[in-house]
Amino acid sequence: MPPKIHLKDVPALIGTEVGVSEWITVDQAMIDKFADATLDHQFIHVDPERAKETPFGTTIAHGFLSLSLLSAMNASGAPQIIEQKMGINYGFEKIRLMSPVKSGSRVRGRFKIDDARFRGGNMLMITYNVTVDIENEPKPALTATWITIVQFDPADRPAL
């Protein structure tokens, strides 16, 4: 369970790792469902027999599937802000797909706050440096600079 923190605590956390998510198993069923949803049925993702002939020796998850798991990783790994009314995915500054996620692998996210700025009366923009680890692999699946927005009641804005 991720820690619960107050809005006023966020600026002091800039530059620190604030959480690590639970492990998520990326199995063939998940990969196949993602292929169906995105209409990307390239054999390296969905054909285990043909994928055996590749340097990976098995099917691999789509890079966008690995990236999309950040939402679940955020929920189980990043701190929960007590005053938050709603969270918004604002986007990414940088994404690097560094290592394929083989079918059956487990992945988890590591969250470091790179920046946090109050915007307007009821928003906090948080920039995370996220690394998605693959269990028992030396290189991560991906790294990303992810920007989120925390919306809160203006009455809860701390005086900084």
Rank of each mutant, 00 (worst) to 15 (best):
R119T: 14
G15D: 15
P55C: 10
A116W: 01
I126S: 11
F118C: 07
V20H: 03
I95V: 15
V20E: 15
M73W: 03
R157F: 06
Y128G: 06
G87D: 11
S76D: 11
T16Y: 06
L69E: 02
T54G: 09
G19F: 11
M125D: 15
M73P: 05
G87F: 03
I88S: 06
L124M: 04
D115A: 14
K102R: 13
E137A: 10
L124C: 05
H41M: 11
I113P: 14
V130Q: 10
G109P: 03
D9M: 07
H41T: 04
K33M: 14
D114N: 12
D156E: 15
A155R: 07
L124Q: 01
M98L: 15
D114H: 05
E93V: 03
G104I: 02
E137N: 06
A61C: 09
P140S: 05
T38M: 10
M98C: 11
V101C: 07
P154C: 08
A116F: 02
L70W: 07
A29V: 04
H41K: 05
M73R: 00
V20M: 10
F118Y: 15
Q28M: 00
G91Y: 14
I134G: 10
P2G: 02
P100S: 02
E83T: 06
F118P: 10
L124V: 01
V132N: 03
I44T: 03
M73F: 05
A116Q: 02
I5D: 15
S99W: 05
M123W: 02
P79Y: 03
K139R: 14
P154T: 04
P11Q: 12
H62S: 11
A35H: 04
E22M: 07
V132I: 06
I81M: 07
I113H: 10
I126C: 09
L69M: 03
G19N: 13
E22K: 03
P55W: 08
E93P: 04
M30K: 01
T38I: 13
P100T: 00
P158I: 07
E49R: 01
G63L: 02
M30W: 01
L124F: 00
I113T: 13
T143P: 10
D27T: 12
W146C: 06
D114M: 13
I113M: 11
D27W: 13
E17K: 02
G63K: 00
I5A: 13
W23V: 00
I147S: 12
P100W: 00
V26E: 09
V46T: 10
D47P: 14
R157A: 15
R108S: 00
T143H: 08
G63M: 02
D114S: 14
